[in-house]
Write a protein that binds this DNA or RNA. Structure first.
Lengths: 235, 235
DNA sequence: TGAATAGTGTCTTTCAGACAGTATTGG
DNA sequence: CCAATACTGTCTGAAAGACACTATTCA
């Protein structure tokens, strides 16, 4: 770098993309948007992660930009937003050297049911991907997000953010199991959750054709809890 | 985004910074570089993380850019390089909206002793920072790197990358303890490491004024090992 | 009363924590 | 033999795995 603020060299394109997860229909799903079907845009008509260019006039920082894009597509703000990583190379965008800052968000089932943007749609995750072929390197980013989510669910309380405001312990366990793709032991799960200072019972029960279940809610402004052991370490 | 590749809007500055850790003099240290003392540059004379602008002609991708900056300052390539996160905002660089992609690298004690660039120097880490006031938001990035390193050392084998090619188990344990800032139990440490399929004994011993210690080396091209429990979970 | 699901208890296993005890070198 | 450090063994405790058992609702 020379002196006198020599900033007249070409700069990469800078974008932010958000991997938005929710549990719908008893499955882990991700929100995708369809790219415009104009030939002048890269990947016309393809599905992609919600995202776009950083607006240096409007976005104060990267996270604000991610929140904006999330809000644009879902109308809600996520209870959990974490930076996933960044991907930048000469090849990932045909328009030139570009770098994207990827975030991942967890939405409660209630929030995921609201009014989506017209070009947005939920897709079920199968294994570590989704059926349609994704634009750019978004398949790779999505895979990283799924791996990160699965890894953290082994030893954190992240699935709590996928729940509606009131939920039962069996429902919470089901969310863990959906993300992990394997069953968990009921009693170990219960003691872990109840000793974690994460949730609190409310004076209501979930009724059904069987024994009612205690309803809980997340404790106020609760950051994710980290456990000292993973679940059920697959040998 | 309109059609016809309307890319003529202002782009953020894009940089890569690397937090380079090594153990020297029985302490965790980080490599910093001094910024040029010209008034036309931001933070003249201040210490900063090694880094700089992405060169869209020369750097194939972000990681290649990070490797280049690491090599420039230390002359070596790191056995471990992990993406840490990105920081981008209107305020962090007086020259305008900028985003940096931060990496962190672990260097073996041997590699950290080589010939540094003239403007580079090692600094001991105290707590979660370093004595000099850092340029930009680099104090925040350094703090995040230290927290990430400490957190991962609880349940991974990362300190193995801070070792020279041949080392004893007590030496490896000492590296864990330096990073964590607390002592570990000898026998639990040994069984954990030896069952991890991480290191292998070589036909040599480390001599001293006492019982010789078995020397080990990292197994070939070994990715970090994840343990199912943390050490010594602080209550 | 029985189906269904919620929730508890009990026994076992695994592995870290604590710490004592043995091993092997140089002086 | 002694100091010093490497290494092993043994007991304990905490939390998970497995799984049986009890509890409470509706039909």
């Amino acid at each position: 770098m020379s002196d006198r603020a020599g900033l007249d060299f070409p700069r990469p394109l800078t974008t932010v993309d958000v991997v938005i997860f929710a549990i719908k229909s008893d499955a882990l799903q991700v929100l995708l948007v369809q790219r415009p079907d104009t030939e002048s845009e890269p990947f016309p008509g393809a599905w992609a992660l919600p995202g776009g260019f950083v607006d240096i006039a409007g976005d104060r920082d990267l996270e604000a930009c991610a929140v904006r894009k999330l809000k644009d597509k879902t109308g809600v703000v996520s209870p959990y937003l974490e930076q996933l990583g960044s991907w930048g190379s000469a090849a990932r965008d045909p328009r030139g050297w570009s770098a994207t800052h990827a975030y991942f968000a967890l939405l409660g089932e209630h929030a995921a049911g609201g009014a989506l943007a017209a070009d947005a749609q939920w897709f079920t995750i199968g294994g570590e991907k989704v059926k349609p072929k994704l634009a750019f390197d978004h398949a790779e980013i999505l895979q990283a997000a799924i791996q990160r989510l699965r890894a953290k669910v082994e030893y954190t309380s992240l699935p709590a953010y996928l729940m509606p405001p009131e939920f039962t312990l069996p429902e919470l366990q089901r969310s863990f199991e959906i993300v992990l793709g394997r069953p968990l032991e009921k009693s170990a799960f219960r003691t872990r959750m109840l000793t974690a200072d994460l949730i609190e019972p409310i004076a209501k029960m979930r009724k059904g054709p069987n024994r009612p279940a205690q309803l809980y809610r997340l404790k106020k402004a609760k950051a994710p809890v980290f456990f000292a052991r993973t679940f059920n370490p697959p040998e």
